[in-house]
């Protein structure tokens, strides 16, 4: 698996030109828009607190059957394309009322880049995962980005209800373990990324790109 330099460069340019992700806010069901709690250009925040116990900023009130429901922001950002024309009007379900322009953080951009550039092993089942003992001991000695893996090598152990199933690496070529997405013995949902591998020859290029992101991007 080769990194497509052009794609990566394009992606970087795109992030640079517009370091935002747009999250549309849709109506969960039909109803009347009774009140807007924000204005165009307002900054809103998503759920916060250690346990995300503090709800996000209120955006608008949707009323159905005399039930006034406050719709709140689920992510930080700036309000745009606010449909003020819909005030006191009936709206269908899943109608876009506003958009939240979310500024991407350095961490989010790196994560996007890595997800597209690395070979990812995803969780086949919702279970707990650990690195194979051989890989773990090599990792301890050599560190991330230096441990080489070969096709057919046992890289992970899936453990669920005391049953252990090995997971093997199945790609041809010279790969190194570049990123670990999970915490050992923590429950991981199905299809969540577990490990990210990079081809050895692509490694310097990938590292260069990440360094560039770290230098050029500052968090909002």
């Amino acid at each position: 698996m080769k990194i497509e330099y052009q794609n990566l460069n394009l992606m970087l340019q795109k992030f640079k030109a517009n370091p935002y992700k747009i999250y549309p806010v849709l109506t969960p069901h039909t109803g009347y828009i009774k009140e807007f709690k924000v204005k165009e250009g307002d900054t809103v925040r998503g759920p916060s607190g250690k346990w995300l116990e503090k709800p996000g900023s209120p955006l608008f009130v949707l009323e159905r059957e005399k039930n006034q429901k406050i719709i709140r922001a689920k992510i930080n950002g700036i309000v745009q394309n606010l449909r003020t024309d819909l005030l006191n009007k009936f709206v269908e379900a899943e109608e876009t009322i506003l958009e939240i322009k979310h500024p991407l953080s350095q961490k989010e951009i790196i994560s996007e880049i890595l997800l597209s550039a690395l070979y990812i092993i995803k969780a086949p089942e919702t279970a707990r995962y650990i690195l194979s003992p051989a890989l773990a001991s090599r990792l301890e000695k050599q560190g991330l980005g230096k441990v080489k893996v070969k096709k057919g090598e046992e890289v992970l152990i899936m453990t669920f209800m005391k049953r252990e199933t090995p997971i093997y690496f199945s790609e041809d070529g010279n790969f190194v373990l570049y990123y670990i997405y999970f915490t050992p013995f923590q429950l991981v949902e199905r299809d969540q990324p577990l490990l990210g591998f990079c081809q050895e020859e692509n490694l310097p290029y990938l590292q260069k790109i990440i360094e560039r992101i770290k230098e050029e991007w500052s968090d909002f």
């Binding site: 069901h29 159905r64 059957e65 005399k66 039930n67 429901k69």
Partner: peptide, 20 residues
């Protein structure tokens, strides 16, 4: 005695419909 619906506080988590 009220003729209206209410939203379950856990609606987002469990997808509960509004209740009359």
């Amino acid at each position: 005695l009220e003729d209206r619906t209410v939203t379950c506080p856990e609606a987002e988590k469990y997808g509960c419909p509004d209740i009359w």
